[in-house]
């Protein structure tokens, strides 16, 4: 059962990821991205990260991809891009080498350290504890005790992001100012 879930989710993730980089139309790439994000959410559930799976669907698939689609529609760049032209002649072979190199190095190091990674049982799993909320409770306890300063600092980050986005995209009337 676990194997079937993993194989199906992995197929979703890989098909979506390939789709993002080979589809010529940016709208199709964004929809392939949704497929990948849902696959990752399924694997989050399989790894007992129930809260993060919900956040993944709401924030990534719900907010970020919709923002991408809004910008695509706003700019009218939903034309198909000609991806057959290559600006530098050896760009694609080099990119393939870099990609395969990264994958190869990480896979080699993961399989070399397969038995070295420790095992622990500190995670509260709802099916074991019998409490459906135990994952959320545990994250909340960790977040608001050990990482409370970082949590407060994210509010500053979000405010800066909102102000920055407004500043970057506003229209300037008299021709002076940013943009």
């Amino acid at each position: 059962m676990e194997l079937v879930v993993f194989v199906l989710a992995a197929a979703m993730i890989l098909v979506g990821a390939i789709g993002v980089i080979v589809r010529r139309n940016p709208v199709h790439a964004a929809l392939s991205l949704v497929l990948t994000l849902f696959g990752v959410a399924v694997l989050f559930v399989a790894q007992e990260a129930h809260f993060l799976a919900a956040v993944q669907v709401i924030v990534y698939a719900g907010a970020i991809v919709v923002l991408f689609l809004f910008v695509i529609m706003l700019l009218g760049v939903d034309r198909t891009e000609d991806i057959t032209i290559e600006p530098f002649r050896i760009q694609r072979p080099l990119a393939a080498i870099v990609g395969l190199g990264v994958i190869g190095l990480v896979v080699a190091s993961v399989s070399a350290s397969r038995d070295v990674i420790g095992r622990g049982s500190g995670l509260e799993i709802p099916a074991v504890t019998g409490d459906g909320d135990s994952n959320i409770r545990q994250i909340a306890r960790n977040l608001f005790s050990d990482h409370v300063f970082a949590f407060e600092f994210t509010s500053v980050l979000l405010t800066v992001a909102v102000v920055g986005a407004v500043m970057l995209t506003r229209k300037v009337k008299n021709g002076k100012g940013v943009s």
Binding site: Q47, A49, G122, D146
Partner: peptide
């Protein structure tokens, strides 16, 4: 996080 049993 699942393997190490660490919520961090």
């Amino acid at each position: 996080a699942k393997r190490l049993g660490d919520i961090g």
